[in-house]
Amino acid sequence: MSLTLESVNLTYPDGDSRLTALDDVSLHVSAGEFIAVTGPSGSGKSSLLAVAGTLIAPDSGRVEIAGVDAGPLSSAARDRLRLESIGFVFQQANLLASLTALDQLLLVADLSGDDKAAARTRASELLERVGLADKAHRRPARLSGGERQRVNVARALMGSPALLLVDEPTSALDRDRGEAIVTLLAEVTREQNLATLMVTHDLAHVHLTDRVVHVHDGRLVDAPEPVPAA
């Protein structure tokens, strides 16, 4: 398993009491599997993604990523685990304003201390894979929303992760561009044998995934029927 959540519970302080964000959540995502997590706002989707990405530690339960139990890890070790095993695709505009498309990818290599020449080659290949080879030297301000999201995907793949965590990738895109991004995610999941977990409130593209998981009040429930492809 590339991602395993077992009996995960997460609460947040809420005045004098605590608000339950995740309630006994168990989920397994295998290599090569693309799972969509849907649910209304405040249902716990983002909390699920944060726990799976080791950005927040659960109150109880087990989180295993690429065979590593994240529970006992120190903060620095969790940083290293994210760098080496997890790729994040954030909502649009989560690119660094001062970096070109190529630099967004090379940053990951710099964080890892990878060989510069090899990193440049891989970054160029990834930008070509997402269709942005000719815009490698553009900063985010000179890219369209769809192009920015493609850079986001390429950056997430730069560290050769085992797990891809995707946060609302279509929230700022029109239907066609959203479809293109989710299609790209489905393709790279299979090409690179990734375990991909995509949080989305948009049911229009979940037909491209292998499985849909629905979150309601912090619990996993049966998924509703996805919207058929247009």
């Binding site: 660094l96 304003a97 990951v108």
Partner: peptide, 15 residues
């Protein structure tokens, strides 16, 4: 001003 950028770097594994 660049707190958001720094948060992204931290999230992708920057120490």
């Amino acid at each position: 001003q660049r707190a958001g950028d720094l948060a992204v770097v931290r999230a992708i594994g920057g120490s």
